[in-house]
Write a protein that binds this DNA or RNA. Structure first.
Length: 255
DNA sequence: ATGGTTGCAACGCAA
C-alpha cells in the first residue's frame, strides 16, 4: 500500500507538532505541504531526518512555500515552470518510487475583480501545460495540494452565496475541469461520489464548528494510478486541534 | 451585519 497525503499547514513553524503527529498516525509514504512560510535556510530538516524521512522544499519568507516529505528517496526535483518566471514559491515536483509527485499551492486570487485573480488563472494555465508534458514522461503522476478551487456545488456548503465568488467562480472551475480533461481523476470525488466533505474552513465566524467549509484541497491522479487506487479521504481531526491550520489533510491510498 | 481570525512581522498584508 502506498499512502500519499497533502496538507496546507499555514506556517510549518507553528504547525510542526501537528505535522509530526499526522506522520505518526498515518505513516504516509509522501506528505506534500503548502504554505510553509519558511525560507529554505529555516526549514526544520532535522525534525524529519530524525524520524527517517527525506525532505525537499521550495520556500520563501512570510508567504507561500511548498515541501515534500517522503519515506523513500526523492529524485528529479523541479521548483519552477520552464516557461514562466514566478518569484512566488508555489510549485514542487519530485519523483518518488517512480511516481511523479506534483505539489502545488495555487494562488488564492483574492477576488474576481483583482489582479491576483488574473495571476491565478494565468498560473493555472501554465500548470495545465506543464502537467500535459509531464504526463508523457511519467504515466504514474499525482497533482496534489491547495488548488483554491471548489469544483462543484457539492464541494461548497452554501453554493448560492459562493456563486461567482473567488474559489468558486466559473473560470476557476473551468480551469479545474481542464486539469481533469488531461485524464486526471479527482480521487476524493471518484471514491466518494455523494459525500459532502470540506478541506478548508475560514478561521472566522466559527466556520469549522458550523461546518461552513469548501473542498479546495485535492489529489488528482493519472489513469494508471487511479487503476491502483483504494481510497480518497479527508482527515478533519487536525482541524479540531488547538491552534489548527485552517485546512485539513487529504489522503490517498494506492495498492 | 460587507463583519470576523490567523500568521508574519512590524502595526499592514495575505489568506
Amino acid at each position: 500500500m502506498v499512502t500519499i497525503a497533502t496538507w496546507n499547514v499555514n506556517s510549518l513553524r507553528v504547525r510542526l507538532p501537528h505535522v509530526l503527529d499526522f506522520l505518526q498516525v498515518h505513516q504516509p509514504d509522501v506528505l506534500a505541504l503548502q504554505e510553509t512560510k519558511l525560507p529554505d535556510a529555516d526549514f526544520p530538516i532535522d525534525a524529519f531526518k530524525e524520524i527517517g524521512l527525506n525532505v525537499v522544499f521550495s520556500g520563501q519568507r512570510t508567504y507561500n512555500g511548498v515541501a515534500i516529505i517522503s519515506r523513500a528517496k526523492v529524485n528529479d526535483v523541479i521548483t519552477d515552470f520552464p516557461d514562466f518566471v514566478d518569484p512566488q514559491r508555489r510549485l514542487l515536483m519530485a519523483v518518488v518510487q517512480g511516481i511523479c509527485i506534483l505539489n502545488i499551492y495555487v494562488p488564492n486570487g483574492e477576488s474576481v475583480e483583482s489582479e491576483k485573480y488574473q495571476y491565478k488563472l494565468n498560473w493555472l494555465s501554465h500548470l495545465t501545460h506543464f502537467i500535459k508534458k509531464q504526463l508523457k514522461k511519467y504515466p504514474d503522476l499525482v497533482v496534489l495540494g491547495d488548488f483554491n478551487i471548489a469544483p462543484k456545488e457539492i464541494d461548497v456548503r452554501n453554493p448560492e452565496s459562493w456563486e461567482g465568488k473567488v474559489l468558486f467562480s466559473q473560470p476557476e472551475r473551468q480551469a479545474f475541469q481542464a486539469l481533469l480533461d488531461l485524464g486526471l481523476v479527482d480521487l476524493f470525488r471518484a471514491k466518494n461520489p455523494t459525500e459532502q466533505a470540506y478541506s478548508w474552513w475560514d478561521y472566522r465566524m466559527n466556520a469549522f464548528k458550523r461546518n461552513l467549509g469548501l473542498r479546495i484541497d485535492h489529489i488528482l491522479c493519472s489513469q494508471p494510478l487511479y487503476a491502483r487506487s483504494k481510497s480518497g479521504s479527508i482527515d478533519k481531526a487536525p482541524r479540531a486541534l488547538q491552534r489548527p491550520s485552517d485546512h485539513a489533510p487529504v489522503i490517498a491510498q494506492f495498492a
